[in-house]
Design a protein around this nucleic acid. Structure first.
Lengths: 150, 150
DNA sequence: ATACAAATAGATAATCATTATTTGTTACCC
DNA sequence: GGGTAACAAATAATGATTATCTATTTGTAT
């Protein structure tokens, strides 16, 4: 797992890539590193508002872009209106509840290497990356007997 | 394969779902059914311009939404700025060339049932759907020795 | 064939996530 | 500590998609 790096390590990584270290960037990373809720930019912005009331949404976006560039975060696209972000940069699948919209990780091994290999053989592509997304009803929504919403 | 239904079958499906059959909707389906390029709304619009010069982009969007609703097309989200559409409504993975941006199908069996099952066990979700996307360099771009672009 | 009611197409404006721009401020190498 | 390049904040711009509004077209019953 690559989550929750110490501030020192984050600082070092940013400097390595020629970016300056700012409180805003550390704060955005901190939010990401302490949640598994895969928030989007707006949510991160809301969460930081009480502590950084002058920070603008654009700054959150720029911080996220930089965190992704230096390998401290990844951008998730689950077919929603907005991107989500994840401080766990390993290539794991995600599950999205079609009822409440929450997104969870799948950290177990789904033999993705074999799938990449088969995809390569079938298409002739040199596969460099993949995204596997699952959709379904989360345990809480099943318990609540709720139907499909999102 | 569910591609290239005859116009009669498309007509029937639309009526079954309470939609009226219009030349515009048939034309949009026709474009989708005769390509494997997974075009987006704008591309479909451009393609139809010569034949339907008065059709607006909004009409293309509405036609695509209806085609998806009646099961004649599916919406693809490959992390690009716009959605792509596919008249092959089976749940197959796609490969996107990170060099030229083209998107191809993977129709072979990647044992997705097993993966869905494992995801269900690990997360407790009732899995209802999934999207697997691969990214890589397509054969043509490999041949051309082109680097990563998109 | 004709007419009528409901749905649609086209034109255009609105929306909303994200990105660019501008300008004053801050981090950090010296 | 000072100078400079990078930055944050505010704001405008962008671009895909959706909503609105009205004239037209479709499906159907005469």
């Amino acid at each position: 797992m690559k989550t929750r790096l110490k501030s020192k390590e984050v600082t070092a990584l940013l400097r390595e890539h020629g970016f300056k270290v700012t409180p805003q960037r550390l704060a955005v990373y901190d939010v990401l590193a302490h949640t598994t809720a895969h928030p989007n930019a707006e949510t991160i912005y809301q969460e930081l508002q009480p502590y950084y009331p002058t920070m603008s949404l654009a700054t959150v976006y720029k911080a996220l872009a930089i965190l992704c560039e230096v390998g401290l975060a990844q951008e998730l696209n689950l077919g929603e209106e907005a991107f989500r972000y994840d401080a766990n940069t390993s290539h794991h699948p995600h599950v999205r509840c079609t009822c409440c919209g929450r997104v969870d990780d799948i950290m177990g091994n789904l033999s993705s290497e074999a799938m990449e290999q088969q995809a390569a053989v079938e298409t002739g592509y040199a596969i460099t990356d993949h995204q596997y997304y699952f959709f379904g009803i989360c345990p809480e929504c099943q318990k609540a007997g709720k139907g499909e919403k999102h």
